[in-house]
Design a protein around this nucleic acid. Structure first.
Lengths: 196, 196
DNA sequence: TTTTGTTGATTGATCCGTCAATAAAAAATA
DNA sequence: TATTTTTTATTGACGGATCAATCAACAAAA
C-alpha cells in the first residue's frame, strides 16, 4: 500500500532504527535486516534509500552530530556570559537527549569505525573541532589564549572519558555526577576569573 | 618440521599478531587467517591453540592488561611518596609501552566488544577498578576520602578521554602534552597538600 | 503509463571452525 | 640398540552459516 512522500519518513525511521539497534547490540555489527525489521520495512528498502550499509551508518552518525549541534545552539541562546557558555556545553553533553545508553554506544562504535572509514573520521573530527570551538567561545572570554586552549583540551577529554566510562556502566557516574565533576574542574581552573 | 615446545612460542606470536592486526585494521574485525598469517602459521593452528576466535581476543586483552599492570608495579617501586604514586600511574598510562597506536586501537575496540561479551566486560571492569585503586593508593595519603574519590574518578576519565582523542590522531596530544594536562589538573587539586 | 514504493528470492563473497592427513620428536618396548 | 607407539605440531581442504547487495516483479498513486 504505497503512499507517495514516504521517503523522508522511511529515512528517519531507518536512522532511528539504526541507533536503537546499535544501542542494543552495542556495536555496528548490526545487519541491514535487523535495522530494516525495526523500522518495519524490508532490507531491500533500506538499500533502496541508502544504497550501501556504510551510507546508512554515515547518515546515522551525521544525524547524531546534527542533534548535538542543535541542542548546543539552543543552549547557547540562554547563555549570557562566557562562563555560562562553557557550562552550557557541559550541560548539553550530559543532557537527557545526549547522555543515553543508545547514543553513548553509538559514539563509541563510530569512534572505532572511524579507524577504517576516512569519511567517518572526517565527520568525527568535525565534532572534535566544534566541541573545542564551542568551549573556546566561552573560555577565551575568561582566560588568556594559551590557558584557554589547555582547559578546552582537558574539558573535552573529560567529557569523552566520562562517556566511555559510562559505557561500561559499573557504578560509573550518572549525568548529575558527571556534570559535577567537570564543573568542579572548571571551577578550580576559572576560580575568581569569571566575568559578571 | 615440528619441534617440541612450540606452544608457548606460538601463543605469544599469535597474541602479538592479534595486537598488530587490530592496530592496523583499527578494530576487532580481523580474520583468523589474517592473524595467523602475521604469526607465520595457518589459521587452523590458531584454532588449535586458542579454540574459538573469542578466546584469542580475550587472551589478547588479558595480555595487554597484564603488561599494564606489570609496568605499574615496576613504577610503584620507585615511588616514595603518595604524590609520586599518583604521578607514576599517569606516567605509565602515557609511557612508550602503553600509549602506542596499536594499544590504543585495541583498548578502543575492546571497549566496544565488551558491550557484547560479558567476559570481556568483566575484564575491563577489573582494569577500571585497578586503575581507581592505584590512584587511590596515592590520593588517600593526600586528600580526605571523599575528595580523593572524586579526583580519582576525574583522573581516570581524563586518561581514558585522552586515549580516545588520541585514536582520532588529529593534532591531538602526544604523550608529553597528555601527561602535562593530567599533572596540571592534579596540581591544582592537590595544591599545597602534598606530603614530603 | 509513468513514477514511487515495496519486497521475496537469489547470488556471491567472506569467514569461522572442523577434520583427516602428514611428519617429526619422544617415549615405550623389545 | 632397534623398533614400535604415542604425543606434539602443523596444514589444506571443506562444510555451513551469515550477510550485503541486486533484481525482477508487483502495486498503487499521479
Amino acid at each position: 500500500m504505497p503512499k507517495v512522500g514516504m521517503e523522508p519518513l522511511r529515512r528517519k525511521a531507518l536512522i532511528d532504527a539504526t541507533i536503537s539497534a546499535i544501542g542494543e547490540r552495542g556495536s555496528l555489527d548490526v545487519t541491514m535486516s535487523e535495522i530494516a525489521g525495526r523500522a518495519g520495512v524490508s532490507s531491500a528498502l533500506a538499500h533502496h534509500y541508502f544504497g550501501a550499509k556504510d551510507e546508512l551508518l554515515f547518515a546515522t552518525m551525521r544525524h547524531i552530530l546534527a542533534e548535538l549541534n542543535a541542542d548546543t545552539r539552543r543552549a547557547f541562546r540562554l547563555a549570557a556570559t562566557p562562563r555560562q557558555r562553557v557550562s552550557a556545553v557541559v550541560a548539553v553533553s550530559f543532557s537527557d537527549g545526549q547522555f543515553r545508553a543508545e547514543i553513548i554506544a553509538a559514539w563509541l562504535a563510530f569512534y572505532v569505525e572511524a579507524q577504517k572509514s576516512s569519511d567517518l573520521r572526517r565527520l568525527l573530527r568535525i565534532y572534535a573541532r566544534r566541541l573545542n570551538s564551542n568551549l573556546m567561545s566561552g573560555l577565551t572570554g575568561i582566560l588568556p589564549r594559551a590557558e584557554a586552549d589547555r582547559v578546552a583540551e582537558a574539558t573535552a577529554a573529560l567529557i569523552d572519558g566520562l562517556y566511555i566510562r559510562r559505557a561500561l556502566k559499573d557504578g560509573v557516574p550518572d549525568a548529575q555526577t558527571a556534570i559535577a565533576l567537570v564543573e568542579d574542574y572548571l571551577e578550580t581552573k576559572l576560580n575568581g576569573r569569571s566575568l559578571p
